[in-house]
């Protein structure tokens, strides 16, 4: 089962910026090798953090405005949004623990 949500230029504000819980956003594209590595990891995290963190993906090919707005210049880029702004950012296909550490930090800061 798919645990991640598709974010796009039109639903981004509603789903991410206005979210009550932190949101992990994976900026990716079909042609990006490292994105394919991180994809399943993000999916796993979505399952494990269900209810605590909303997890979704932005395809930069089809949603250039959102990518540009947050200054994405490298993918995969993982941004953690908390109360409408970027709390943390991870660039590149990093091991799962790097991502969960960042999420735990945001969750524990509450």
């Amino acid at each position: 089962m798919k645990n991640t949500i598709e974010f796009n230029d039109s639903n981004f504000d509603k789903e991410v910026i206005e979210s009550d819980i932190p949101v992990l956003v994976d900026f990716w594209a079909e042609w990006c090798g490292p994105c394919k590595i991180i994809g399943p990891v993000v999916e796993e995290i979505a399952g494990e953090y269900s209810g605590k963190v909303k997890v979704g993906k932005v395809d930069v090919d089809h949603n250039p405005n959102t990518a540009m707005k947050f200054g994405i210049r490298s993918i995969p880029s993982l941004l953690v949004f908390d109360r409408g702004s970027v709390a943390e950012q991870v660039v590149g296909a990093v091991p799962k623990k790097n991502i969960t550490d960042v999420l735990d930090r945001v969750l524990n800061s509450k």
């Binding site: 042609w31 990006c32 930069v60 994405i72 210049r73 490298s74 993918i75 660039v91």
Partner: peptide, 17 residues
């Protein structure tokens, strides 16, 4: 600036330029 304008992967990041 790695990942914010500096890159070691043209195929990953060229798209943003």
């Amino acid at each position: 600036l790695m990942g914010h304008g500096v890159s070691t992967c043209a195929t990953c990041d060229g798209f943003f330029y």
